[in-house]
Amino acid sequence: MTALLLLPLLLPFALPPLARRALDRLTPVAALWSVTGCAVLLAGCSAAALGLFVLLGLLELPLFAALGELVHPLRTASDAFVVPAAAASAGALAVCGWALVRSTTGQVRAFRAARAEAGRGPAAGDLRVVDSPYPDAYALPGRPHRVVVTTAMLRSLDGSEREVLFAHERAHLAGGHHYALVAAELAAHCHPALRRVRDTVGLAAERAADEAAAVAVGDRRLTARAIARAALAGRAARTARPGFAPGAATGPVPQRVQALLAAPRSPRAGRAVAALLVACAAVSCVASVTGTADVHHRVEVAQGEERP
């Protein structure tokens, strides 16, 4: 039964390709929330499995066996497996916990800096203008929500393209996409395979906002053009700056532009991938719960409260 607990640790490796397919087949909003939900469940189950391995290992030690009021030795697969597994799990949990704490403090700091920045510039409605030579724009959640745009970004777009930009950022805020981004970020630190899922969730959030913007301005080509122009303006301003490392693969912006120029897809196309996502999350949950119940039963037996 201990082998069942390996399942929640292995299933996250199936999620990155599944998430990519979900983004290809489902509507961006559906892909965003289903992939995020799946990533959070898989992260939770893998952390729970690691915790159970640590618990099993600890109960092998006389001190913890006494603390747990065990009267019989705990029945486990074999010490050759349980002790190294517990040690590795404890190490993995410590690394995850440290990464989670560091990421959370970093995000909170960046968020505070962004809010302070947005509190200074000239404002009208939900717009905050930041005087900066670098084209940039982002949605800043909070009370009230803000759309922060630099002057360089405003100048590199024409009037209707600026409407696309505002509609895009307002879609992020209205859709609560920042919750998905935060959840994906936390999940990414719980299991190494979920790191790539974080990028897919980010792309899904952008695609969802793009589609909402295209509906708001009523023009997919205009939306695509605004995104391409904004990205190229940013590229022109950034090439001379240090710390910029160009990636090799096709980045998210051309994918977004191409998706907008293509016809919108029918939502029925992705049933299979949606079912796979649900199955993935369900198997992981069932394995964790069954594994937990099994460990609990074995501890009860060792405590002499239940018959084997």
């Binding site: 302070a116 949605a139 980045g251």
Partner: peptide, 28 residues
């Protein structure tokens, strides 16, 4: 504002908490 913006720019975490309009581009 300009100084704060350049400080934020150096913070790679920002990419993740804040949904930016456009990400950085590769030459391709």
């Amino acid at each position: 504002a300009r100084r704060m913006h350049s400080e934020l720019d150096r913070d790679s975490d920002r990419e993740r908490v804040l949904a930016r309009f456009v990400a950085q581009l590769s030459p391709g």
